[in-house]
Amino acid sequence: MPRYALLLRGINLGPRRRVAMADLRALLDGAGYTEVRTHLQSGNAVLTGPDADPVEHERRISAAIDAALGMDVRCVVLTADELRAIVDGHPFTDVADNGSRMMAHVLAEQPDAEQLAAHDPTELDPENSRLGPRVIYQWCPDGLMGAPPVGGSAEKHWKIMVTARNWNTMTKLAELI
């Protein structure tokens, strides 16, 4: 059975949408996933599940969270190959010397050619952002809060959910998977 990376969006960022990682592991086990390992407290996990389109896993996991916790939590599921392609495609290895300031804005789906032609979010930060497969890479030398919102712009214009992780998290997930 294949391995997947799970990126939950918007949990454990404030006092309301709290999910203990032990509870998340138990929930995913109960949903039929195995070898579940979480990373940090921000909704990152790797797991083994049936061979299926990642979108099916996203729906299944979101529904399980809603049923068990009463929370509408969206997520992105990447195959092991998709995660490895994101990590291997890092375009700023020559300058990004701080993994907490190198961001991967992971896309729920790849935008189509029409969306790409109509709006390129990397134009907000052309020196420090690049588009990759299901990801917008962004080097934020002054920190994420001071960087142009390329992920938010993509989400707004493409109507595709985006969830961001720093490079330390992405490489750790790649190790765990």
Rank of each mutant, 00 (worst) to 15 (best):
R165E: 05
R59T: 13
G143I: 03
T79W: 14
V162L: 06
I160C: 01
L8A: 00
N168A: 09
A26H: 06
L83D: 01
P148Q: 09
V46H: 10
G132F: 04
E35M: 10
D81E: 15
G151K: 07
L131M: 13
W158E: 01
R60C: 09
G70P: 05
G49E: 08
I65E: 10
H39M: 04
E155L: 07
M103N: 12
F92N: 11
A113Q: 11
L13F: 02
R134S: 05
G10L: 04
L28D: 05
L47V: 10
L124P: 04
T38V: 06
V73L: 04
L7Q: 03
G32V: 00
S153H: 07
L8D: 02
F92Q: 12
N168F: 03
K156F: 03
P141W: 10
R9V: 01
D88S: 08
R60M: 08
V76H: 01
E35H: 14
A96M: 05
A154G: 03
R60S: 10
I86E: 10
N12R: 00
T171Q: 05
D88Y: 01
P54K: 11
H39F: 15
G132I: 08
A108G: 08
D112Y: 03
M21G: 10
L173R: 02
P133W: 13
D29K: 03
V135Y: 15
Q115K: 14
P121F: 09
S62I: 07
R134N: 11
L116A: 11
A67T: 10
L116F: 05
V87A: 12
A147K: 01
M71H: 08
R59D: 14
M71E: 14
P149A: 04
E58A: 14
N98E: 15
E58R: 06
V46P: 02
N12T: 00
H105A: 14
T163Y: 00
L13D: 00
R101M: 13
R134A: 13
R130E: 13
G10R: 04
S129M: 06
R16M: 08
E56L: 14
A154V: 01
G99E: 08
R3S: 12
A20S: 10
L173Y: 10
L28C: 00
R9N: 00
I160Y: 05
Q41N: 14
R3D: 14
A174M: 00
Y137L: 15
I65M: 04
G89H: 12
L27E: 03
G132Y: 11
I177G: 06
R3A: 15
I177Q: 06
V106K: 03
H119F: 15
M145A: 08
P54E: 13
E155R: 09
D81M: 11
D120R: 04
H57E: 09
D97P: 07
V162W: 11
G132A: 13
P2I: 11
G143V: 06
W167S: 04
V95N: 09
P141T: 14
D72C: 03
A52P: 11
V73K: 15
L27F: 08
D142W: 03
L173G: 02
T38A: 11
A45D: 06
E175I: 02
L13G: 00
G89T: 14
C140M: 04
R60K: 05
M103F: 10
E35C: 01
R16Y: 07
H39I: 11
S153F: 03
A118M: 13
A174L: 06
A154P: 01
I11G: 07
P121H: 01
T79F: 12
M21N: 02
N128T: 11
A108W: 04
P149L: 01
L40C: 07
A96V: 05
M71T: 03
S100Y: 04
